[in-house]
Design a binder for these strands. Sequence first.
DNA 1: ACTTTGACTATAA
DNA 2: GTTATAGCCAAAG
Length: 115
Amino acid sequence: MMKKNKHQNQSDHFFQLVYSIVYLIPKGKVTTYGAIAKCLGAPKSSRLVGYAMNNCHGIIPKVPAHRVVNRNGLLTGKHHFSTPFEMRELLNQEGVDVINDQVVDFKSKLWIPDL
DNA sequence: ACTTTGACTATAA
DNA sequence: GTTATAGCCAAAG
């Protein structure tokens, strides 16, 4: 009788939850940390979303972290990729134009996870 | 157990 | 338009 589990022992429960949302981001679209956090029921934990992404290196399947930008449409996490240009490259391949580390027509490309 | 950190956001000046 | 400050909360040290 698993009585030792007082409350989901999944240490990275929050991380997995974030990843599951990121996987849902359609190709050619982007979303924000706050949108993901809000979808998780913790709109004020936007920082934790970014924190989770910092741990996404080596996650299988690959996490499309390049589709997650801040609320301004700025590629704040580009420095966490293999190369600062990789994030822009990936977005460009999906039809998302990026100029000066900012998504062009960000408002149009924005996608909000559906609950 | 306490302190620091961080891929954020909202508000104020 | 920009810059500064505060709030936020879980993971890592």
